[in-house]
Simulated assay, not measured.
Amino acid sequence: MLLILLSNLIVTSFLVGLIWFVQVVHYPIFQKVGKQEFHHFHTFHTLQTGKIVILPMLLELGLSILLVWEGHGIDYMLSTDNISENMAMRMGNFYSYSFIALSLTISLWILTAWIFVPLHGKLGNEKTGYDKEKMKKLVRRNWFRTILWSFRLLFLIYMMIETTNNIYM
Rank of each mutant, 00 (worst) to 15 (best):
W143N: 09
G62N: 09
V68K: 01
Q48K: 13
L148Q: 02
L154E: 05
S64R: 00
F116P: 04
D75H: 12
N8G: 06
T80N: 06
I161A: 10
K35H: 15
M1I: 08
H120G: 00
H26K: 12
I147F: 15
I65Y: 03
L55P: 03
W20R: 09
S64L: 02
K134A: 13
E126F: 07
V53N: 06
I74P: 01
L61P: 01
F151T: 14
E85I: 09
K51L: 11
W149M: 13
V68L: 05
L138Q: 15
G121W: 08
F38Y: 15
L61Q: 05
I52F: 07
H120T: 11
R145A: 07
F151E: 00
H72C: 07
R90N: 04
E70V: 03
K127N: 14
L154G: 15
L78D: 04
I29A: 09
M1G: 06
L138Y: 10
T128F: 11
P56V: 12
L148S: 13
K136I: 10
S98C: 05
K122V: 10
L138N: 12
I65K: 01
V139K: 14
T49G: 03
S84T: 15
V139D: 04
G62V: 09
I19Y: 10
W20H: 10
V16D: 02
V53P: 05
M87Q: 11
L108I: 08
L5T: 07
L148H: 07
L66E: 01
K32W: 02
N165W: 07
G50Q: 05
H42W: 06
L148V: 11
G17L: 03
Y97N: 13
N93V: 09
F44G: 08
L153H: 10
E162N: 14
Y158C: 06
M87G: 03
M87C: 00
F151Y: 11
G34F: 02
D81Q: 11
L5A: 00
M169P: 10
S79K: 15
E126T: 05
V24P: 02
I106P: 01
I106A: 06
S84K: 03
D81P: 01
T49N: 00
V53I: 15
M57W: 08
T164E: 12
K127M: 04
G50D: 02
W143I: 11
M87I: 11
I54F: 10
Q31P: 04
L148F: 12
T112Q: 06
G71K: 06
W69C: 08
R90A: 15
N166S: 15
E60I: 01
N142A: 03
G73C: 06
W109A: 07
K137E: 12
I4W: 10
R145I: 09
N166L: 03
S79D: 13
S64V: 06
V139P: 04
K137I: 11
L138K: 05
M89Y: 13
I19E: 08
P28T: 11
T46N: 10
W20Q: 09
F30P: 02
S98H: 00
F41P: 04
K35D: 01
G71Q: 01
G62T: 08
L123K: 07
S7G: 09
F155N: 00
H42R: 07
L153W: 15
L18T: 04
I10V: 14
I100G: 04
R140K: 14
